[in-house]
Design a protein around this nucleic acid. Structure first.
Lengths: 239, 239, 239, 239
DNA sequence: CATGAATGAGCATTCATTCAT
DNA sequence: TATGAATGAATGCTCATTCAT
């Protein structure tokens, strides 16, 4: 397609209006202790669950409060009683998501066996893709639009964690326990290959067809990825 | 009802919507290629370019014609003069995208050297992620919402192509040229690892930071992926 | 996050559009009569009244929701809260209209005196033209554009009723109680002559002028029509 | 009904009448002599013919220039070259229509035989309903919305004509040639009963059904109306 | 004359949010 | 708490009209 880019999306006037005052001060956060009764928490969870369902498929702007309210089984005004702003639901979802998202990598221990640790990490990520595909898609959605709500956290928290784990990997490389390679791109490739089974699920199933597109695909994927990250495609012994 | 005059009003109305300017006289050719003046083609390209910009970030429902029109530098009605329906723009974009998307895999030749072929394929995909990130994101967006517009093509055309290439890979495995493994998941992993640099670009850059997040990241990625797919993480010399 | 998935997004979305507030839980009764609060009924009546006012003059396409909303004294979105589609208002109006429209003819009894029955029927129709001229015009408008929304009912319900009454008329003819003539065209002529005073009201008044164009015109019409249908224009005695 | 005219045929017939007094009394300013080449007149007639087709069904506001242009077989800007305003087309149509509309009544001669004259008038009106139903509907449409464009002409020209003919009828009554009755309502009833076959054509056909809804319905109507206006429904033999 | 292109003003409908009860 | 009602601001799309060639 013709590369005659005229304006970037960011520059568009419409967006500016839409953002209202969202960017004004970010989260005033610690000012609200919130009483939080049991019922409140339960309802909020139901809403968040419904919102995850809807946001993960349609994206933030594509999703409507009506949809979320219906999936949550409550009226729209009632939903807005708990989350006065649509954006608020999304924000909550994203912040909870990040915690969940960082967990598996955090568990990779420097004092463990490299291959065991890496293989476990891949397994855990693959299980998340299988068990929480909506979270994965919600995250992917956010990435696709430039991560407007969590870019700060990516650049600070996530970067710090990855930097730390990259150190671990490099230590293992220094010790000759794993091949010397780029630890960052190594991590990226683990993310990419595992999350793919959640984010591109339709495509995976369309290609594997009825026969191999069932639940077994995750086991096949696990086996394949294990080999890939262990030996690559070079045939083992050659004489 | 009314005696069938040459043209009834009812008929004319429907036609107007469908044919949109197309000469309604007689259907000579079995599918008029549409006159298409220079200006029309140019404008359409500008619109498609702008739509790619917007759709790739916000998805179909999240994008507005206003935004697209503004990016394209024209008025909304003028844009609709060329594409009467928002969906039509998206459709065009998707169908063009699919062609572009299948090309790199199609080029993988059965009669070439396996490692050269696979490495070339990875390179091409990585170059696409670098040069056409918006297409990649447009595709990812579509996948995330279940590929409503292209599911058929995935199940037919894409599946056929992947089946064919899986055969090629299996032949190479049979010949002992590459490790025996799952050819489908192998292809998935190439897609995932390369498209990641377009779809999750923000995250990649946030983590690599100012220093390594520049254009060099694609070269680093290429080098890393080459090693991954060749040898995995097992250290070469083992004694 | 809680995995209590209740509904899929796809399902919820479609439902939302169709049911519009209807309780989506379970389809207990074979056609919920809709809760219908007082306010809802009242507002709906106000809207229908306003819509009658506007549709009867401008026709379906010529009328705008803005106009109807203004006549109804409410905002456009509020109006659409009660009738989600413009067409829906029209549909309701038409179905109610048909009932009203068939009533006078239904009341023509086979066991009554022919002239009394016919005269009463004409009177009733004339009263409707006087008291409900907008309904008459709404009906006329629909006829003029080919009755797209009620053609089925015309061909089934209305035809059945007219067929039945035509039998009654023919029986009277057989009994020598009224002249032998075409019962269908007889009915048409009663419709035409009475509805004329509603549909062509402007013309009637323009011609009768200030003097005779007042309310008295309906009495004059009644007297004239009575004579016409009774004796025609032939002078009574001739000797 | 009307012989299935192809545009040109229909146009020629309409043209003939149109050219008669087309320029005679239009309310527009006499400042425009208009050069009027043959081509211009022809194109205008084609447009008026197409506009009649569309306006008569959808009404003024419901009709679109696009539709008219398509039926006329020309581009929208080209059409607007001849009639710069949509309203202008309508105005022309209405003013020409009035001439056509008054003609049959004008032909009713005071010095003829009353019954022959009245019967002839009914016949002519019925023929118009059969051959020019669109004109009838266009007129009806205008009446329904209060005749905004021709109310003046109704109150002046039409009223004058009807007053004159009412005098004729009253003279006949005075002479005992026809029953004494209201001459105005008599005229209304002739209009109503004859135009009904054009304006409510759908309903007439829906009720008469396939069998009697064919071209014969006009003959049946003529026969019925003749009897109605002559003798009414009172049986002849009275003992 | 004729037409492709362009646009301001609608128009039906949606949606996040507010209000009243 | 919960919900029926209400609305300002879009949003996709249409249309009469104008412009330029």
């Amino acid at each position: 397609m013709a590369p005659k880019k005229v304006k970037t999306v960011e520059a568009s006037k419409t967006q500016a209006k839409r953002q209202h005052k969202a960017n004004a001060k970010v989260a005033t956060a610690p000012a609200k202790p919130r009483p939080q009764t049991r019922i409140q928490r339960e309802k909020q969870d139901i809403i968040l669950e419904a919102a995850l369902e809807v946001f993960s498929v349609h994206g933030f702007r594509g999703a409507t409060i009506d949809q979320i309210a219906e999936v949550a089984g409550m009226s729209k005004p009632n939903l807005l009683y708990y989350f006065p702003k649509k954006e608020e639901i999304h924000r909550r979802l994203m912040s909870e998501l990040l915690v969940t998202w960082l967990a598996p990598l955090e568990e990779m221990r420097a004092d463990g066996d490299p291959f065991v640790e890496i293989r476990s990490y891949i397994r855990r990520k693959l299980e998340m893709a299988r068990d929480f595909p909506r979270q994965s898609r919600l995250f992917a959605n956010e990435m696709l639009r430039g991560a407007p709500h969590i870019i700060d956290m990516l650049e600070v928290d996530l970067k710090a964690l990855v930097d730390e784990k990259a150190q671990v990997l490099m230590a293992w490389m220094d010790q000759g326990k794993i091949s010397r390679t780029d630890p960052y791109h190594l991590i990226f490739s683990i993310w990419a290959t595992t999350q793919h089974y959640a984010d591109f699920d339709v495509q995976v199933r369309a290609i594997l067809g009825k026969g191999r597109g069932g639940e077994g695909r995750f086991e096949d994927a696990a086996r394949y990825l294990e080999q890939l990250f262990l030996h690559g495609l070079t045939p083992k012994a050659k004489g």
